[in-house]
Design a protein around this nucleic acid. Structure first.
Lengths: 207, 207, 207, 207
DNA sequence: ATGTAAGCGAGACGGTACGTCACGTCTTCAC
DNA sequence: GTGAAGACGTGACGTACCGTCTCGCTTACAT
């Protein structure tokens, strides 16, 4: 998936000094569930901590004890689901690998919660360096990591030149799909992914 | 520019019933100025109607009389500056035209206000169909319109097949630059734009 | 009554700059009513602004717009009811005047809201100079004013020496009744007031 | 002193069932110290159990294990200092005895912590019957007990009638000083006490 | 000497209220 | 009859304490 990070504030805290009280996992879980319900119901922007706490049957403090802000909360949760990560494709051909990457990524982007949250986080990242950093990290470890792997394999097989500009290559790979999914909001049919794969492979070979 | 729309609420209203009072243009202008200052100062999300009115030395009513919400206000203003629009390049070659489009677009995207607002509007569009529609319209009339023109010229010159999948072609053209500017937030140097142009042209020819 | 002051914050505000909005009197009245209900129901200490607003069917802001704190609110309201003030007795004798003062004062002190609030304000005055000042003012204009008048009349009639220590005399007049009403919480029967009147007059004559 | 009671919850608890752990006296002491510091620093109303525990370096539980509420805590502590009690004067004359009582009482009332706490407890007593009862008990055992003794001695010496209304007499004795100390907050100079003594004795003799 | 019951600090828990801010609507007055 | 000023009810913010509760210690009695 596009977002994939590990800043689990809650987990860090759970390493409390001996003899101290500990954040209850059932409460944490109730909050997590409530967040997803709220996200689905009203979206990120109109989601409030109070609403989450109310829905989770929990005090506001229980939320603030775990996450410093709505943003960190969502970031953490999104990471938790994204952390499973993307499988590294290895089909033996550039086209095959790209195609697999597109399949997996497009499946994630089609999920309504993802397609709602990602632009929100993106927008917030434009303002908050912490968020930006977390997003970059997620990107590197997720999408970019996989795409890099694909590029290296292709180069090793001689399908691409050894000295391609990796940054540009990554933009060529990820940009069109993101644009279509998030900006144009067009369909991501199998046929589209196939055509996209072909065109992208051509672009990469032209580098 | 990427965003370019014409839903000018104010303009519509200014066609008031004959003989009636008219919204004062100097007030409208003061609000517009205040919005840009606020956008620069605190960003879209933390910008408030109250703050705008305060800064403009104007009652809240004056703002609400002109625009239904913060979103419509910003949408309208952004459109106003974007409406000048993009020049249709005509250099005689696909590469030349693309290069020119990229120059202009990247100049717009480099503007800090634009790069802050666009993801915000994008995120809001994911929730609000009106906004989504306005954004689509802006996109069609701006970026996509120009890109379409480029594609048609190229086809007329025989540089591209006549039957290219236009949607896919547009994604290939716009996606990588947007991804780099907004998601990766990498540099948009002349060198980068040159390489991008080459790769994109290759991808298009492969369609 | 014991407390009698005029710091009507609300009234002051009602003299707003021309063309401005004005605090609605019906809202003010609803708050006032709610305060008395809350005072009766839970007492000063457990009374909350939120509770008042809720009971009055009003936003918290409407309360804060009128009074800076719970204390100012209560002070103002108490003043409003106390402002009618005490009648200046003129029976022609020291005993007669004292007796009348005691009747009126004890009637006020018997009111459950008064006997609850006065110690609260007293306690708060021990901490907050503003409150202390307001209480002193109320005292001077109310109880002390009347008692002073009684003393002067008696002196004019030759019942008392001209040069009595007024402060001490006021303490002798007001102290025992307050002590009994608020500290001992004993009965304030007609018989008691009669005996008190006699003893106090004797003390004053001994000055 | 005015307040003087013995509801020492802690002491009661210390008789724990055989074989059980016992409240640690050093912890109790730390809390006591913290309470006085907090009282001095922020006053009764703004004093919080959390703050006390924090200042004492102690868990909140340790406090709640000893006292049921802030009120009981303060009541108990105040009693502990008050329990030394007032000496019974025996100067051989009504004036002499009263004068001594006033000296001692006024010294206690001049102490800033006492003059802050007493109105607080008074106000709370108006709401909470337990507190009221404890205050009455303290009053009886302290101020009233001493004053009663003075009255009896004077009657025995023939300075007063045998059948004086004791309640009224007590109000005449204690009321003016309390009023001056707590309500008027005037000075309690030697001269004042002397005049007060004379006037009060006169009032008593007139009974 | 050991078992065990209770005290200990720490602090999480569901709550209530705080005082502030902005929302979008509505009302009043002046130009 | 527009426009500024701003009051209105609403609802969320993030914080402070409330009084209860559960944790793993540690302590000290009773066997």
């Amino acid at each position: 998936m596009l977002v994939c990070m590990t800043t689990n504030d809650a987990q860090q805290r759970r390493r409390a000094p001996a003899g101290a009280a500990v954040l209850r996992e059932d409460v944490t879980e109730a909050i997590r569930a409530a967040v997803f319900e709220e996200l689905a119901a009203v979206g990120y922007a109109r989601m409030s901590i109070e609403g989450i706490a109310r829905r989770a049957g929990v005090g506001k403090t229980a939320v603030y004890r775990r996450w410093r802000s709505k943003l960190h909360l969502v970031l953490d949760l999104v990471s938790a689901v994204a952390v499973q990560g993307l499988p590294m494709p290895d089909t033996g051909s550039l086209e095959g690998d790209l195609r697999l990457l597109y399949e997996v990524t497009s499946r994630a982007l089609r999920h309504p919660v993802a397609s709602q949250i990602i632009p929100d986080l993106q927008a917030e990242a434009a303002r908050n360096p912490d968020i930006a950093q977390a997003m970059q990290k997620a990107l590197r470890e997720g999408q970019h990591g996989v795409a890099s792997g694909i590029l290296r394999s292709a180069a090793a097989r001689g399908e691409l030149r050894e000295d391609v500009d990796e940054d540009l290559a990554l933009d060529l790979i990820s940009g069109p799909l993101y644009w279509r999914a998030v900006v144009v909001r067009g369909d991501l049919s199998k046929g589209y992914l196939a055509s996209l794969t072909g065109a992208t492979a051509a672009a990469l070979r032209a580098l």
